[in-house]
Nucleic acid binder design. Structure first.
Lengths: 180, 180
DNA sequence: TTTTGTATAGTCAACGTTGAATATTATTTG
DNA sequence: CAAATAATATTCAACGTTGACTATACAAAA
């Protein structure tokens, strides 16, 4: 996934690893992709060996230098392969850490569980609102392509599904505590 | 997550790495947790060094031997810490590979994209049905605790949300192709 | 103008995951 | 009963991720 992201970004013109990192932050794709700088540089080094990318130039600023990478023809082939792959594999993702925690809920006091869930709810709610706000801004710069619209809506659906699940969990824990 | 799973399993009595692997498969938790044998053995070795688990005994079957691990008191403390952690961190998960593929959809022919999505739809549909079937079986062994019920329902919601998203994507790609 | 802070640009060791490989025992099939 | 197949039990090298660390350049404040 990191590899596809890197190749995809380079497909719109040469750039440095640092620029990629900045771009991912601007596009909010750090929210769902979570690609850290280290992974970008690693992917660049690796794909340079494999001849999928190459250094186009090295820009100097005083004593500091940055490497500008470019995608190669065989890199473009690889990119197409990765796109098809990423569409065909199962991308379904479950909140695995939460499920694991739930499996062993009985081993901690109900109060602690509720407090922990409240922390998560707060964090997700904040992310959700930031995303909604960030998108309203974009809305004003003309309307988005239908597919982008669909993807954003899907992200919102995920936030809503997850928040609703967390709330139900909390209620059930509280209900059960009252029961005893 | 692997660590919590391992400690949690050991909390119900000593067992071997191989038994853990089998148990995860039986509980369908391989569906959402996706913990491979290698990770289990690695976690056991690591946590043995950290004194969270220890070898309770070594069983021999002819020439082959298996190690039975047991959780230690400090392992139980660690487990509680990990439970709280897993409930408090943000567990929201997006279908990142799919989103990445979508971002670069324009670089492959629409037909290939649709074919790839169809593959994914087939796979997910199959998983979804297997899960539904597997659960009907359990249903008959008395009803499940409310929290388990909630978690299963959440898994179904995830399957349905994802399938619906994939269908919408397909439609939009087809619509756009017709448009030209 | 020096210091403080922040943006730029990247490296690297430690860590966990993956999947192929290994080796032994148990079971089925011809 | 021999051969093939499956189940048991684990190892390990290759790989990617993480996050802390380094180091330079630039801007702002004191």
């Amino acid at each position: 996934m990191t590899r596809l992201m890197v190749l995809g970004l380079l497909r719109n013109g040469p750039m440095s690893g640092y620029q990629m990192h900045q771009m991912l932050q601007m596009l909010q794709s750090d929210k769902w992709a979570g690609i850290l700088p280290g992974s970008i540089y690693h992917a660049l080094k690796k794909m340079e060996q494999e001849k999928f990318v190459e250094i186009a130039s090295v820009e100097q600023t005083g004593n500091r230098s940055k490497a500008i990478y470019r995608i190669t023809p065989s890199g473009e082939q690889e990119m197409k392969k990765l796109i098809t792959e990423s569409l065909s594999i199962s991308s379904i993702a479950f909140p695995a850490p939460l499920y694991t925690g739930i499996s062993f809920l009985a081993w901690i006091p109900a109060d602690e569980a509720v407090a922990a869930l409240d922390q998560q709810i707060a964090k997700i709610t904040k992310d959700y609102e930031e995303m909604k706000y960030g998108e309203e801004q974009k809305q004003q710069e003309g309307d988005l392509p239908a597919i982008v619209r669909l993807s954003f809506d899907n992200m919102y659906d995920h936030y809503e599904l997850h928040l609703s699940f967390l709330q139900k969990l909390k209620s059930e824990i509280v209900r059960k505590r009252e029961e005893d």
